[in-house]
Design a protein around this nucleic acid. Structure first.
Lengths: 193, 193
DNA sequence: GCGATACTTTGTCGATCGTTCCAGATAGCC
DNA sequence: GGCTATCTGGAACGATCGACAAAGTATCGC
């Protein structure tokens, strides 16, 4: 054996994620990524193979760190309306939270990369699908319990909720007004009544 | 006087719009734009000043050609539910219409350019605002007539509807399934009931 | 402590970026 | 029909792009 990798891969991917969220895929150069991660380009290529490779790693980390906890929350067995509201509030917080203007990686990837890179498209589909599925299961059970009206299909409702979340990301990029976004989210939630 | 401009500016901007929608702002090179418009780079710079200038012209054309007609439709005096449904159906058609995979310029600009170029951000805000306003006026009148429940603010409903439209664009980029998007749109429209 | 190993850094590669400039082409005015 | 002003297309600019190879350096097993 020999020398071990010195830098923290997760920290580097996190820094790269920030860079990509700020400037998009094409707008972020390898130089930007070097500065953001504090690594030489050689190290980046050794660890991730290419700019695309690093971007895919960023997507995977995003899913693991942000999407998965939401799915877990939805499957935690709490009251459906309450936990869904929590997810929406969390999304609005995330959008307007810090003033760093970090766009949503998922929405950005959908617009900029999904048509160019099949592996990106696949990850996006998988991420939204797992979110939709968790929502579907939660809603279907709530409907069975009579907590939510059964006259609309649980999968349609789930898809609509994900659509609304994506829409909030876009609206937040145009006008990051927390109070406004919260009111829009409230309207979306009334579809469950 | 002397020689007059030969090419059709509108046609050139339209071709550039297609290019930008397909590959995004950073992903589209001047070479791409030259090929798309059929113009030499000299002509492009003479007419638009820069790549940014051409992009702004594209945004303005988009607003004039796609956003303005929607606003007109909303203000045409037709039944509120009916005309709003028409807008949503039109949006789904636009998203899934041709197989050319043209992303929404507005959503793309929001993600990629709004933070970088203030003039882009301003145009985006203005475009969504005029859409929200038209929806608000339509809904407020429908509420006054008793056609729509008055217990939710017309401006919140309007903002929510725009949010849903943006969300549909994103979802369409991830999975351009017309039937699916239509069902999600249907759920959104139930918020008016 | 030494050799072997593999990570990090640096410098540089050809290609391509957005932009500019120039020579040739073309249309209006006398 | 010549003159001139303007548009056109393409060549060329420096800068920067993503990618890579080689040199330097630190860590491991022995």
């Amino acid at each position: 054996m020999a020398r071990t990798r010195e830098f923290d891969v997760d920290a580097a991917v996190t820094a790269a994620m920030d860079a990509f969220r700020r400037k998009g895929y094409e707008g972020t150069s390898m130089r930007d990524l070097s500065e953001a991660t504090g690594l030489g380009s050689g190290s980046i290529y050794a660890a991730f193979g290419s700019k695309d490779g690093l971007y895919l790693a960023v997507l995977d980390l995003y899913r693991q760190r942000y999407a998965a906890p939401i799915v877990d929350l939805l499957r935690s067995g709490s009251d459906a309306r309450e936990v869904i509201r929590e997810v929406f509030v969390g999304a609005v917080d995330d959008i307007t939270g810090d003033g760093r203007h970090l766009a949503c990686l998922i929405v950005g990837a959908s617009m900029e990369r999904a048509q160019q890179d099949l592996r990106v498209a696949e990850r996006l589909r998988s991420t939204t699908q797992s979110l939709e599925l968790a929502l579907h299961d939660l809603l279907a059970e709530a409907q069975a319990r009579g907590q939510i009206k059964p006259d609309r299909s649980a999968s349609d409702l789930a898809g609509f909720l994900v659509t609304s979340l994506q829409g909030l990301r876009v609206m937040g990029a145009i006008n990051p007004d927390r109070a406004l976004l919260t009111r829009y989210a409230e309207v979306a939630l009334t579809c469950l009544d």
